[in-house]
Each structure stands twice: as C-alpha cells, then as structure tokens.
C-alpha cells in the first residue's frame, strides 16, 4: 500500500501553519499601523477652503488673538467659525479688491455664510466642550499645535481617543494658567507637574472622573 502522506507533508503542514498564523498577526499589525497613520487620522493634511485663509499671517504676523475670531471658545462647546462680519472688521478697508477675498465679499453681500471645510471633525459620538478645556487651563496649542506658523491649517495631533486619554489620565503636566491659554509661545521655568497640580486644585479639576466614559460619550 502506498503512503498517504508524502515525505514532505510534515514540512508543508508546518509552512502552512506559519503562513496562516503569521499572516493573521501581520494583517492585525498592518491594520493597527494604518489606523494610526497620518493618512487615516488626517494629521498634517491641509483641506481645500473657499478662501485660502492663513493663520500664519493673522495669528502669527498680525498677532491677532485666537479669541478675536473664535469668540465662543471660552463660553460654549464650540470655538465657532467666525461670521463674515468678523472678517469684514478689517477687510472692509484692507484688500478690498483682492480676488482671493471675493467669496468673503459675496458672502456679506448675499448674507450667506462662507462654507468652510472642517479640518478637525471628531466622531459624532464625541461631545467635546471647548469652554471646559479652556477654563481648566488646556492651551490651544496642546491640541491644535503651533497654528500661528501654519499658512494653511492642518491637524497637528491625531486627536484620537488615545490622544485625549493620555491627558485625561494625567492632566497636570499639560495645564497652564487660564490667562495664557491662547498664548502660542507661552513658556514657564516652573516645573510643569508642580504648576499643573496647583492649577488643578485652583480650577477644581477632578482627575478621578476624567476617564469615565460619560465624560466624553453620551
């Protein structure tokens, strides 16, 4: 009677096992890497806009405070896109003929808001509140990066759940005095953890509740 298994059968079986198990692990690793890649999170990517607005020019060179335009950031959940009226506070006088600003003038004339495209779009099951972060001493820079150096706005951080949790688990070394949140160049020689712990007491930030699901999801 002939042999059922060839002499190589054992080797083939081992190779097959290795390929199947290794392949599964490989697929898993590639999926994890893709999920965290800048391609997936959008970090570093600019977005087409109706007007190529430069934060570098306005917030950097002209030193206009973030809150001049994003006026809701201290008292509402959303920082808010500025209304056309805000753009026209200066552009009613400056660059009034510029082709680049034609959509802004048209928006004012027709009383229709400009349709900016979101650079940062959190999932709809995340209920992010700007006001509570600003009032607790989280600087704009912490999540948005050096916006004053960006000719076209891009995401500076992945803003993934793990990014949020990193700070929610241990906020102290990332907090800064409330008065300095919009200061892109803020710096202190004081120990950040020491300062942060003092600020947490002062602003009544309770780290125990910060990692509870319902803080961000509801």
């Amino acid at each position: 009677m002939a042999q059922i298994f060839s002499r190589a059968a054992d080797t083939w079986f081992r190779v097959a096992m290795l390929v199947i198990v290794g392949g599964l692990i490989g697929v898993f690793i590639v999926a994890m890497l893709l999920e965290r890649s800048d391609y997936q999170t959008g970090r570093g990517w600019t977005v087409d806009q109706p007007v190529p607005f430069s934060h570098q020019h306005h917030a950097g060179a002209l030193q206009i405070d973030c809150r001049y335009c994003h006026a809701g950031v201290e008292r509402s959940a959303r920082a808010g896109f500025p209304p056309t009226h805000t753009c026209m506070s200066c552009h009613s006088q400056l660059w009034t003929q510029a082709e680049m600003l034609a959509p802004v003038r048209r928006s004012l004339e027709e009383d229709r808001p400009l349709r900016w495209n979101r650079v940062i779009k959190l999932p709809d099951y995340v209920y992010f509140q700007h006001d509570v972060h600003v009032q607790s001493g989280v600087g704009c820079v912490s999540c948005h990066g050096q916006v004053d150096t960006m000719p076209l706005l891009h995401k500076a951080e992945p803003l993934s759940m793990s990014f949020c949790l990193e700070c929610h688990r241990d906020p102290a070394p990332r907090l800064q005095p409330r008065e300095t949140v919009a200061d892109m160049a803020w710096h202190t020689d004081e120990d950040r953890r020491h300062l942060g712990e003092r600020l947490m007491r002062e602003y009544r930030v309770d780290p125990a509740g910060l990692t509870s699901c319902s803080v961000c999801h509801r």
Binding site: A77, R78, G80, F81, P123, D124, Y125
Partner: peptide, 13 residues
C-alpha cells in the same frame, strides 16, 4: 460605526 450621525450640529449645513 456611528461616527457620522443624522443630527443637526451648530454651524453645519
């Protein structure tokens, strides 16, 4: 995954 839901949000279209 419910990351985009049919609901009205501030300043949206």
């Amino acid at each position: 995954d419910m990351s985009r839901q049919h609901k009205a949000q501030d300043q949206a279209a």
